[in-house]
Amino acid sequence: MGAKTWMLVYSKRDPKEFLHAGARLDRDATTALVKQLYPSEKLVPLDDGDLCFTCPPDKEIVAGCFPGLAIVAAKEFGIDYPSKLASRFVDAFSDGTLYLHAMHSVVDWFAFGVWRNGILQRSLSLSPDSGIMEDIGDRLPFEQAYWAGEHPAVDPDEDPANYPFPFHPLDLGEAALAAFFGYQLEGMIDPELIQPERIPLMRFERKKAGWKFW
């Protein structure tokens, strides 16, 4: 299936600390958060998912609230320009650090954004076909080696000019998962990282709320 994500993660401290600590999922807080973010939709609980699957179909939302940490995955976050994330999502998490992580293996696209106290600090979006769509702010430490060509996208015997970047976007996407949240989905996975299948998340079917007349 390939690696796919479209999610927001909010935290008041380093998200890795909370996820490594194994905090319990707060189901009441999760339900309340999703209702706050989607007040015009009827939300129907589904069977639980986990952190391995943060690329729900259009008619679903995946979310989890833990002490000091919130995760929400939905179609609204799979956007080419992270800086254009709807203000209602940024405003809802304006007293800490908000991360957007989105990637799609079919088109080799990766995007991420980081806001601190509601202010965008870094945004990047790129794919081989579209090039660099957005590049705002200073590059973060985990990016440096990739831009420096230390993780080339092509084999040593291939011409690097055949690929538009000095790295593969999905490799950078996996590095971002590890740097921000302490886990990865694919590739050479460090055994010291979090196992995402151990982090439960709630799933909701989303329906437009409306009046019925009989």
Rank of each mutant, 00 (worst) to 15 (best):
F89A: 07
Y183Q: 11
P141V: 06
R139S: 05
C65S: 08
P191Q: 08
G118V: 00
K212I: 12
P67F: 08
E17A: 15
K35M: 12
S83F: 02
A176R: 01
A153F: 05
G137S: 09
F204R: 12
R27C: 02
P45S: 07
W115A: 12
S123I: 00
V114F: 08
D135E: 11
G96E: 12
A23N: 01
G118D: 11
I79K: 06
G113N: 04
A29F: 02
S123V: 06
S105C: 05
K207I: 06
S83T: 06
L100W: 00
V62Y: 05
L46H: 05
A178Q: 11
I79M: 03
G149T: 02
L140K: 15
G22L: 02
F93K: 02
L8Q: 03
F110P: 04
S125W: 09
A145R: 08
P152E: 14
A175L: 10
M1K: 10
Y99G: 03
A148P: 02
I194V: 12
V44Q: 04
A179F: 04
R206D: 02
A3S: 12
A70L: 08
V90P: 05
L98Y: 12
E17W: 02
I199W: 03
L25M: 00
L25T: 01
D47N: 13
F18L: 03
L177Y: 12
P166E: 13
V154P: 12
D157A: 09
L37M: 15
L43G: 03
S40H: 03
D91F: 02
R206Y: 01
D159F: 08
D155S: 14
D138K: 15
L120Y: 12
A74Y: 11
I194Q: 02
A153T: 02
G78I: 03
H168F: 13
D159P: 11
A176I: 00
Y81D: 04
F204G: 10
S105G: 06
K4V: 10
L19V: 10
Q195W: 14
K4A: 14
D80T: 12
S130K: 14
A32Y: 00
V44R: 05
A145W: 05
P39N: 09
P191R: 01
P169G: 07
G2S: 14
M1Q: 00
L120D: 10
K208V: 12
L43E: 08
A73G: 04
L98T: 07
I194D: 08
K16I: 13
V62E: 13
D28K: 01
H151E: 11
V114H: 05
F213P: 04
F18G: 02
R203W: 09
Y163G: 15
V106N: 02
H151S: 14
V106T: 15
R13N: 10
D190F: 13
M188F: 07
V90I: 04
A145Y: 10
V44L: 15
E158H: 05
N117H: 00
K42P: 07
Q195N: 15
T5P: 03
C52V: 10
G68H: 13
E134P: 06
P191Y: 01
R27V: 09
H101L: 10
T54S: 09
L170S: 00
D138C: 12
L8W: 01
S87G: 06
R116G: 01
K4N: 15
Q195M: 04
M103K: 08
L8S: 12
P191N: 11
P56D: 13
H101E: 09
P15W: 03
I199D: 05
L120K: 03
Y146D: 10
D47V: 06
E158I: 15
L43C: 06
D80V: 07
K16Y: 05
